[in-house]
Design a protein around this nucleic acid. Structure first.
Lengths: 340, 340
DNA sequence: TTGTAGGCGTTATCAA
DNA sequence: TTGATAACGCCTACAA
């Protein structure tokens, strides 16, 4: 009834009120060319006075420019994602960009639908943790002039900026930690081989063992989810009775392993030493606190967003592959500190 | 060099190729009026043939319609959020809506900036877990004709659709569980009082105690984060030496409490019984597995999205306040099952 | 049932 | 430095 005044205010209203042309208003909005400082100030005043807000759809349509980024993750329910996303969101927000979120749910079909949706919606760039390992299906996005930033999982043969950790080195370091502690039967729970992080972490584990030929690999592959870690752990426990240490290649699978250990009343670290991936909130709340390979998740998100916006501003600069340091945080799940 | 053919295809191209007018093409796109079936089929063929995709910015500008929803959470880093978000994303994606994500980070200033950004960006509706407890600052959004769906935290005095759990009942049930187990010194770790869930859960705890006048409340308020739960637990432990049970009103604070118990080598459930909020992935991986008040987070997200889209389609239907059932999942952190 | 034409709010071109 | 004007791609009276 009383909302008489909610008809949208446009450049025309501002122009009329300020006694200038719409062109001038537009120039002021975009802080563009050389509008005389006095005029600029005056127009700004009128803009505030009227509470004018530019229409982004019209801006987009006319100029072709958008301040909007698509973020497409393979598994939105993994807490690893939450932290990375928070970093991305923080950076984008401060840069005045909107964040469009998608979940491919580890499904290549859905992934390509989501990418298409991003294109339809109009995004200036895309941050992607890809489902598959080959980069072919992303070419049409690139051809449309939309840059992609690959995060965490980096498809082969895709010439785009990327940010990840050194997965081989991280896993190798964790495995060597267990070896140096004297373990000779070390099981590895990995993920689906088509996921680059899974493949590379397994490689790191194997590289560590190659330096110690007397230690034979024991490998079981899960699905990077809790249930998969649980099942893989049970399988290993059933097939071997002499394993003294586990290296688990992902956060949720580590929870699954713990669940299996608890059920069998296996004590950590007395009976089995455990190293997990990702320093998640619960790591310090477990008893014993968990030794983990920590990734700088939040910073990873921030840097990813920064790299992408750089690319958007500068489409022809050389491609960057950023690798972040991981840290092996030694707590008590491999023993040693407990007696201290 | 070779991208000659990436000039955008428009309704005009389709119209020309199909030998019809742009109006007809538009009607076919929107599956609208009565275009003769044959013509419709023919135009559709041409659309596929040319790979035509409607320009959403133009559509939005001209028609005023958008298939885009803003989601604004108070703390994007809380894993509770991840699960709710996944539910929202799933529903929106299937309905052909894009999801714009924002994080207010428990800051009312940022919250209103984000809301303004949503308005500027153009959204058809907003899902909001609000930072403050009073609804005044949301009126301008509502006045702009954009519906809000309040989720989890429901501001007072705001006449909008909402979805939440019965926080009073949930906390009361948890407290009564501890009382029925024979505990007479039960500490409660709550959250900031201006957050509705925090306030209501504390109320539930107090209501339970009112039924047992011999039990005196012991309350410490944290910040809903891990460090807050840790500190609150330490405070209680320092001030009382006869507490036999803890009820912690949020997931991350429960992790903080656990951390404090571990540090002091306090055994759960032998020395202290513990009930937490939210059935998070780690609950079953803890030793002992955690007794919790479980919220249907994923479904909460799905239902939230559905309610909002209903509202968008039907702006004048009566306001709905949906309350979801919680479940007290009894595991082993209050004792009892361990010997089984 | 189909077509014509004007305009959504902005920006870019051109002229003044 | 500023203004008039024509698009951007689409939708929707209105006319046929």
């Amino acid at each position: 009834m009383k909302n008489m005044n909610l008809k949208k205010i446009t450049v025309h209203d501002v122009a009329k009120q300020a006694g200038v042309s719409t062109a001038t208003v537009s120039r002021v909005i975009n802080d563009n060319d050389a509008v005389s400082p006095e005029l600029k100030a005056h127009v700004r005043e009128v803009i505030n006075e009227l509470g004018y807000r530019p229409n982004k759809a019209a801006h987009h349509l006319r100029s072709g420019k958008v301040k909007r980024v698509g973020v497409l993750f393979a598994d939105i329910r993994n807490p690893f994602f939450t932290s990375v996303l928070a970093g991305i969101e923080n950076y984008l927000h401060e840069a005045g960009y909107a964040l469009i979120l998608g979940n491919s749910n580890e499904d290549a079909k859905i992934e390509s639908m989501q990418l298409q949706a991003f294109l339809d919606e109009g995004v200036a760039g895309i941050i992607l943790s890809s489902v598959t390992n080959s980069g072919a299906q992303y070419q049409q996005v690139l051809d449309a002039g939309i840059p992609i930033l690959a995060i965490d999982r980096i498809p082969r043969n895709l010439k785009v900026d990327s940010i990840s950790i050194d997965n081989v080195r991280a896993a190798k370091q964790a495995a060597l930690h267990l070896i140096n502690l004297g373990h000779e039967k070390i099981a590895f729970i990995g993920g689906p081989e088509h996921i680059s992080t899974a493949y590379l972490r397994k490689k790191g584990y194997l590289e560590a063992l190659e330096e110690h030929p007397d230690i034979k690999p024991v490998i079981e592959l899960g699905d990077f989810r809790q249930s998969g870690g649980y099942q893989a752990t049970r399988n290993i426990l059933a097939a071997h009775n002499d394993i003294s240490a586990f290296l688990v290649a992902n956060n949720l699978m580590t929870l699954g392993a713990l669940q299996a250990f608890n059920e069998k009343r296996i004590l950590i670290p007395e009976q089995i030493a455990l190293v997990g991936f990702d320093d998640m909130p619960w790591a310090t709340s477990l008893q014993p606190p968990l030794t983990v390979v920590a990734q700088p998740t939040y910073d990873m998100g921030k840097i990813a967003a920064r790299l992408l916006l750089d690319r958007i501003k500068n489409p022809d600069s050389p491609i960057q592959q950023v690798t972040l340091e991981t840290e092996l945080i030694i707590r008590e799940s491999c023993g040693g500190l407990r007696s201290a």
